[in-house]
C-alpha cells in the first residue's frame, strides 16, 4: 500500500446487500416519524413475508430499523420505520458510494 493511494471508505455491510439496501432505500422515502405497515412494505418491495422478516431482523439488530407491534382497531398491525441511526447510516452509505465512484469528490 502506498502513501498516495486515496483512502476509500468502507461500505456498511448491514446495508450493502441488495435486499437490505432495497428495504432501507424504500423506508428512507418515508417522512421522519412515519411508520409503514408490514404488508404494505412487502407489497412495495415485492418480497415474501419470510424474506422481509429476515432482513428486518438484521436491520433491527443493527439498530437501523424499529419494528412496532400495535393494534388498529381489533386487528394486530406491525409497523416499520427507519430509526435516526438507520437514516444516518443510510446517508453515510450513499455518501460513501459517491466517494467510491468519484474519489476526488469530498463526501459532504
Amino acid at each position: 500500500m502506498t502513501i498516495d493511494e486515496p483512502t476509500l471508505p468502507d461500505l456498511d455491510p448491514v446495508i450493502h446487500a441488495q435486499a437490505r439496501l432495497r428495504v432501507v432505500a424504500a423506508l428512507s422515502q418515508l417522512n421522519g416519524g412515519d411508520r409503514i405497515a408490514f404488508p404494505r412494505l412487502q407489497e412495495i418491495l415485492r418480497m415474501t413475508p419470510g424474506n422481509l422478516s429476515v432482513h428486518l431482523r438484521k436491520l433491527e439488530e443493527a439498530g437501523y430499523v424499529e419494528v412496532t407491534k400495535t393494534h388498529r382497531g381489533r386487528t394486530p398491525a406491525t409497523l416499520v420505520q427507519l430509526t435516526r441511526r438507520g437514516r444516518f447510516a443510510f446517508e453515510e452509505y450513499v455518501a460513501a458510494l459517491r466517494t467510491l465512484i468519484d474519489p476526488g469528490e469530498e463526501p459532504s
Binding site: 432495497r22 432505500a25 424504500a26 422515502q29
Partner: peptide, 13 residues
C-alpha cells in the same frame, strides 16, 4: 447500488 436506491425510492414514492 446508487441506481437501485434511486429506483426503490421512486417506486416507494
Amino acid at each position: 447500488a446508487l441506481d437501485l436506491i434511486r429506483q426503490e425510492r421512486a417506486n416507494t414514492g
